[in-house]
Simulated scan of single mutants.
Amino acid sequence: MPAAPRLTEPEIALRLTALPDWTRDGDSIRRTAEAADFPAAIRVVVAVAEQAEAMDHHPDIDIRWRTLHFTLSTHSAGGLTALDFDLAARIDQAVTAHG
């Protein structure tokens, strides 16, 4: 499958305005979320994993007790693509629903 096209700097800036909990870090976007407790954090991870599998696009996830760190980048494109922002929005939904 060919890589998704990289977004331009103006496209990235515009898409970030719709995702206020996400920040740019070079060729990645990042978000930290707090869950109520460890089981809630795991529920968020499971929900994100299901979305990631459906999209065939997978985030880096670091879990520390109830703190979740998500990082998104399209490695095959060498930067940020629409896939990253689409998955970020789904991660936000999972955090809201399960966190």
Rank of each mutant, 00 (worst) to 15 (best):
residue 4 A to S: 15
residue 60 D to Q: 12
residue 89 A to N: 08
residue 36 A to Y: 04
residue 85 F to T: 02
residue 97 A to K: 10
residue 9 E to M: 08
residue 82 A to D: 15
residue 32 T to E: 08
residue 50 E to T: 12
residue 82 A to V: 15
residue 11 E to V: 11
residue 97 A to C: 07
residue 44 V to Y: 01
residue 50 E to K: 15
residue 19 L to M: 07
residue 87 L to A: 05
residue 36 A to F: 07
residue 68 L to S: 02
residue 48 V to H: 00
residue 70 F to C: 01
residue 20 P to E: 02
residue 95 V to K: 01
residue 71 T to K: 15
residue 18 A to T: 13
residue 94 A to E: 03
residue 75 H to E: 11
residue 91 I to G: 00
residue 72 L to K: 06
residue 73 S to D: 11
residue 92 D to Y: 01
residue 87 L to V: 07
residue 46 V to W: 08
residue 80 L to I: 08
residue 90 R to S: 10
residue 26 G to F: 05
residue 75 H to Y: 14
residue 94 A to G: 11
residue 78 G to M: 10
residue 23 T to N: 10
residue 46 V to S: 14
residue 5 P to A: 14
residue 15 R to P: 00
residue 75 H to S: 13
residue 3 A to W: 06
residue 27 D to A: 13
residue 44 V to L: 07
residue 49 A to Q: 06
residue 64 R to K: 11
residue 15 R to E: 10
residue 1 M to E: 15
residue 47 A to I: 02
residue 94 A to N: 05
residue 37 D to F: 12
residue 98 H to I: 00
residue 54 A to W: 12
residue 34 E to I: 05
residue 59 P to A: 07
residue 48 V to K: 00
residue 44 V to M: 05
residue 94 A to F: 04
residue 52 A to S: 15
residue 58 H to V: 06
residue 64 R to F: 03
residue 42 I to C: 11
residue 17 T to S: 13
residue 14 L to W: 11
residue 53 E to Y: 13
residue 84 D to S: 13
residue 69 H to A: 14
residue 6 R to V: 14
residue 33 A to C: 04
residue 1 M to W: 06
residue 84 D to V: 08
residue 10 P to M: 08
residue 89 A to M: 07
residue 16 L to A: 06
residue 81 T to I: 02
residue 15 R to I: 03
residue 57 H to C: 03
residue 54 A to T: 10
residue 27 D to N: 14
residue 60 D to K: 11
residue 68 L to Q: 03
residue 60 D to R: 13
residue 5 P to D: 11
residue 51 Q to W: 06
residue 48 V to T: 05
residue 90 R to P: 02
residue 81 T to S: 06
residue 99 G to S: 10
residue 35 A to N: 09
residue 99 G to M: 04
residue 46 V to F: 11
residue 91 I to L: 12
residue 92 D to Q: 03
residue 5 P to M: 08
residue 46 V to E: 09
residue 79 G to M: 06
residue 81 T to G: 03
residue 13 A to F: 06
residue 20 P to G: 03
residue 39 P to H: 08
residue 95 V to M: 05
residue 68 L to A: 02
residue 52 A to R: 12
residue 87 L to C: 09
residue 32 T to Y: 00
residue 32 T to A: 08
residue 98 H to F: 11
residue 35 A to H: 04
residue 34 E to F: 04
residue 89 A to E: 15
residue 26 G to V: 01
residue 60 D to I: 07
residue 47 A to K: 03
residue 17 T to H: 13
residue 75 H to L: 14
residue 14 L to M: 09
residue 68 L to P: 00
residue 45 V to M: 14
residue 97 A to L: 10
residue 98 H to S: 03
residue 35 A to F: 04
residue 87 L to S: 05
residue 22 W to D: 00
residue 68 L to G: 01
residue 33 A to R: 01
residue 67 T to K: 14
residue 15 R to L: 11
residue 88 A to G: 05
residue 89 A to Y: 06
residue 80 L to Y: 04
residue 1 M to R: 14
residue 85 F to P: 00
residue 19 L to D: 01
residue 38 F to V: 10
residue 76 S to I: 06
residue 34 E to T: 12
residue 30 R to W: 02
residue 55 M to I: 04
residue 69 H to P: 01
residue 61 I to M: 09
residue 73 S to E: 08
residue 84 D to I: 09
residue 40 A to C: 12
residue 47 A to G: 12
residue 44 V to R: 00
residue 89 A to C: 10
residue 12 I to S: 07
